[in-house]
Amino acid sequence: MTHIATGFSQPVFGAQSAFRSIMEAFSFPGRIVEVQGPQEAPTGWPSSLAAACLTLLDNDVSIWLDKEDPETIRYLNFHAGCRITSQPNEADFAIILDPESAPFQQFKIGTDKYPDRSATLLVACQSLSKGPVIEISGPGIKGKRRIEPMLEVASFWAAWATNNALYPLGFDVCLFTGNLALALPRSVSAHTLEV
């Protein structure tokens, strides 16, 4: 068995700084923000994803993992104390390392009365600048913005169109790679650009 990866060296300041970055990402959809991550992260995780988990998760939320390995479960139990659920439709947060095969239709989208009772998907992404060109628009974006995260048009962006159509319901997504993050709140509508 391996060590549990350590958290922020200064838990309070680390989480405050990461929270500020993630809030900026959600306020300006499509903007690539830097997230100061902890020194270590579970195997295969971008450090910004670890920072988001240490900042956003606590013992009130339940998490769905697309790869339930013991190291990740130990890490989340130790640092966040959150519940792990095997049902995507029960999760408040989902940690997705392989966005190609995630069950996007099953996540919580909230209710008409409580649209906030929806899932937030934390997605690890190969790159935020080498994927297909997508044009996004919506609140927080002046005019239009082009983003190029490494996500499949047929799987992820097709699911995103369905999600955006549900507005004000729907899930929110935050993409992570290295020490960078890019958020896609449900209000963002996206179009593929022919290149």
Partner: peptide
């Protein structure tokens, strides 16, 4: 040993 959580 190594710290998993520094003393707080």
């Amino acid at each position: 040993f190594r710290w998993l959580r520094q003393p707080e």
